[in-house]
Design a protein around this nucleic acid. Structure first.
Lengths: 246, 246
DNA sequence: CGTAAACTTGAGAAGGGTCAATTTGCGTGG
DNA sequence: CCACGCAAATTGACCCTTCTCAAGTTTACG
């Protein structure tokens, strides 16, 4: 094993972690400098192009990751080819199913995605010595559970128009989570293509397209090309999404 | 504070916990006898009739519970009255959203339900002193997340017939989790009425009823009255549910 | 600037919803 | 124990939203 400069003062934050968002808002936020050093020794950064597979379904889980940038879709595939996106993850989310050797869900890049990966064993070791890390992972699991249940309501009870509006509202909300609702228009690039949106909403591409056209014609959104969306009023979009919180 | 017999030997398991399933398969399984004693001092058992509300949506969370018997439905209600069941919980599941003072989800009894409740503060205190307890809660959150995502696939991509079959398969699987698939017929009582099944599957009562009739006429299930179901072959039912795991 | 992928639009079909009328099941009280 | 009455469930007829299939059109990219 080669000694590294960082070993000398292991209260120093590793170079690779210095500018990393996961250290602030992600799971690494609970680690002390020496734990960060331990983790950073086994990490490696990867970049995936859109539609590349980060984690295959059914395969053995060998490593976990933090999303540094981009959007990841979690998908379930049926035997006959039907597909459903069961979750979307954004930076600096933790990626991977803890405490299980495999999962039926695959993770695919929706946009170009940058991740910081580390072996399964490293995470499990850190969890054992740091209850705060498990707490952070627990918190993220609960957040994802809240989001999944929100989405169950959307899939089960909303119309196609409401579903598409809900999706746009979801994406817009992720652009700037700090932003309070309706301080002027908001513009963003859709991280998903129509086919992905359809797989997320349990609709067909055609229905998604028609509903987006409707939203455009009614002035609730504006489009530049097919991906750049402007929402003049988030309140109006929220109303179109049939948000149940009044 | 009154002294109790159990304080003398706090390695003794409290009377109320002795026959409790939550001590074996539930979250209490991680607690040592003295922690059980501490918890049991603040617990109280409650029985709710079917359709009674255990936890109201939006209200402040004052206590958590373990389900001792019965089935609990977690529901989301929209402003216009549309309703969706976003989760079902069985004994000995933990009930309540940890680390949050409120939730938009209400918990209602589907059947008669018996719970063991304790104040929020007690749980939080125990979590602070016992990482194993948090690990157990984390595991349950991950299990619920897996189930929620499974259900997202069902809601988003399955037909009405497949949805109803999936629901029946889900319930049948919960009757005896240890049972291996297809060792003869299995009989059980449906914990949900048609309206609840509809709210769980994102369908109407009428569609659920029609699909149940279809399953009955095709011999995949048999009915006694409206609630008692016999499944001659779980494999056949599983196939009807379009289980994607081949 | 050409090509393929992504997206939109249209027409017709179908699955599931809506409304309405029965029928069944079941607890309660006579 | 039976009859009543109500809630739950079933069934039918019709309608509407979404899907399917089939062109077109636009966009992105080499």
């Amino acid at each position: 094993m080669s000694s590294k400069r960082l070993d000398v003062h292991n209260s120093t934050i590793p170079q690779v972690c210095v500018a990393c968002e996961a250290r602030h808002r992600g799971v690494c936020g609970t680690l002390n400098p020496s734990q960060l050093v331990k983790l950073s020794k086994t990490t490696s950064k990867h970049i995936f192009a859109a539609d590349e597979e980060l984690i295959p379904a059914g395969g053995e889980i060998r490593h976990y990751s933090n999303i540094l940038s981009g959007v990841v879709k979690l998908t379930r595939l049926m035997a006959d080819g039907r597909q459903q996106i069961v979750g979307l993850q954004f930076a600096p989310d933790f990626l991977g199913r803890p405490f299980r050797s495999s999962s039926d869900i695959s993770a695919e890049a929706a946009t170009e995605v940058q991740v910081c990966s580390f072996p399964r064993a490293t995470l499990e070791e850190l969890v054992r010595e740091s209850p705060e890390l498990e707490h952070m992972l627990h918190q993220q699991a609960l957040k994802e559970l809240d989001e999944a249940r929100e989405w169950i309501l959307t899939l089960g009870r909303k119309t196609a128009a409401e579903k598409v509006a809900s999706f746009l509202y979801l994406i817009a909300s992720h652009i700037d989570p700090e932003r309070s609702i309706d301080v002027g228009p908001i513009q963003f690039e859709l991280p998903l293509k129509r086919a992905d949106i359809a797989d997320f909403l349990g609709l067909t591409i055609e229905t998604v397209s028609r509903q987006i056209t409707k939203l455009r014609k009614s002035g609730i959104i504006e489009l530049e090309g097919t991906r750049i969306v402007t929402v003049p009023s988030m309140t109006v979009l929220q109303r179109a999404s049939a948000a149940d919180i009044i």
